[in-house]
Amino acid sequence: MNDLRLTERDLDNRTARMTARKVQVHYGQNHALKDVDVDILDKTVTAFIGPSGCGKSTFLRCLNRMNDTIAACRVEGQITLEGEDIYDRRVDPVQLRAKVGMVFQKPNPFPKSIYDNVAYGPRIHGLARNRAELDEVVEKSLRRAALWAEVKDRLHAPGTGLSGGQQQRLCIARAVATEPEVLLMDEPCSALDPIATAQVEELIDELRENFSVVIVTHSMQQAARVSQKTAFFHMGHLVEHGDTAQIFTNPRDPRTESYITGRIG
C-alpha cells in the first residue's frame, strides 16, 4: 500500500495535468462535495463512478469552472491545470474552458445547423484560417464522433433535428473540434446504442493519445473498458481513487466493493 502511494505521488509530480486538493462544494446549504483530492493524469482516461447524486457532475463542473454559472454554488480548495490555480483571479474562465472542454449529461445542440454546431468552437477561437480548413475540422470531428456517415449529406440541416443519440455525438464532435487539452464527458453514452457507444469508446481511446479524458459513467463495464484510473464517489466523498484494474479487482474500501458488485447505488 505504501508503495502505491509512492508511485502515485511520483506521478503527481511528473505528469498530473490537473490536480484537485481539498475541494469543497456547497450549493447554498447543501454540502455537495467534501475534501476531494484527485489527479487527472496526462494522456490518461479517468473514470468517475458512484451512485446518482454523489457529486460526480458537480466535481466535473469544478474542473472547468462551469459552476461559476450557478449562483448558489461555492467552490473551495485548490484545483490546478498545469500547475496554475484555475480559481485564481487572474485566470480567465473563458480561456480555461477552451482548454478544458465538456460534453454534458444531456445533449444540448445549438439551434443551428449540424455544420455550424461543430464549427462553433473553431470559429470562436479562430482555429481555422479559411473555409476549406474549417470544412476539414468539421469533417474530422464528426468522423471522430462516429457521426459523419449519418450526417454527411445533411450538414446544413438543423442539429436539433437529430435523434437523441445523434445529438449527443454531435455534442461530442463539437467539443472535440475545439481541440481541448482535457475533455470532460458527463455520461456521454447514456443515450447511445451499443454500436455508437463502442464508437465513442474508441474515440475516447484515441483522444487519450493527445489529451486527458475524464468520463463520468454509470456503467462499470465501460469504466473498466476505457479508463486507466478510476475514482469512486459516494455521498460527496471521494472514497477511493486509483488504477482502474486495482479498483475493480481489489478495492480497498468496503463501500467501493459493494458498489461495483452492485450492492449499493
Binding site: 472547468n64 454559472t69 480561456q95 472542454g101 454534458f104 445549438f110 467539443a175
Partner: peptide, 20 residues
C-alpha cells in the same frame, strides 16, 4: 443547457448571447 454548452466550449458571455 444551451448557454452551458456554449460557455463550456470557451465562448464568452456576449458570444454566447449573440450566437446562441
Amino acid at each position: 443547457s444551451l448557454r452551458d454548452g456554449s460557455l463550456g466550449l470557451g465562448a464568452t458571455k456576449s458570444e454566447t448571447i449573440r450566437q446562441v
